[in-house]
Amino acid sequence: MSTQPLLKVEHLTMRFGGLVAVNDLSFDVQKGNITALIGPNGAGKTTVFNCITGFYKPTEGMMTLTHADGSHYLLERMPDFRIAAEAKVARTFQNIRLFTGMTVLENLLVAQHNVLMKASGYTIMGLLGIGGYKAASAASVEKAKYWLDKTRLTDRADDPAGDLPYGDQRRLEIARAMCTEPLLLCLDEPAAGLNPRESLELNNLLRSIRKDDGVSVLLIEHDMSVVMEISDHVVVLDYGTKISDGTPSHVQNDPKVIAAYLGVEDEEVEAVEAEVGL
């Protein structure tokens, strides 16, 4: 069982009418790895994310998430909120989706909704002041503090999330996703709009999430300084099809990847097309 990957995506296909956004995509996310999903704009990366996290129902394919105790979750059959709550997959969004009118701390408390809901006896016992809600509430603040500390947001804890600068909002979204205690963290372009220093900081944060918190990461990213630096495994998509899969150095030197990103010389077009299978 130990060889079982955390997430196994098999023959994932997503069609929107006549448009094939993702075409027969298969890849694995290994436990404790940082896996990057890259590709040119419009390659279908975010669609893959939306399928994994349940925001889209895939047209075809199977996505199996395996927990440490061996239990399987078939993600394509679960509604989005159960994927987060039960299969333990958390995500962030390309265009940040924070609760802007709530404080930073409140954002992190909302993320612990399901744990607190149980502790409050589904509100009824908490309302009457019996049961362990008080202790659970204190524990949730402690956990929020841990993540505030880790993302260096402690000073801004009582400010509205909408007041934070862009880079802080990105980190807060990661902290919020981590507060749901995920096994797999899906990050949709976490480095978009960050300056080089902030990107470096993000690298360290993601490494620490993998090492200290034991959470596997799947990320979409355009910033190659992030991708090549931290990922163990890279999957390259182009027009919805996987064109390469392997270690960062392998992908970097793959002619198909270079062709997809940079294009090729005119005289090489036919050779490359034959190789790609066009």
Partner: peptide, 19 residues
Amino acid sequence: RAWEALREDEIACRSLGIN
């Protein structure tokens, strides 16, 4: 808090496992 979060952003709520 889930009510207020729902008012702020429903999709984010679902991504956090809120029914």
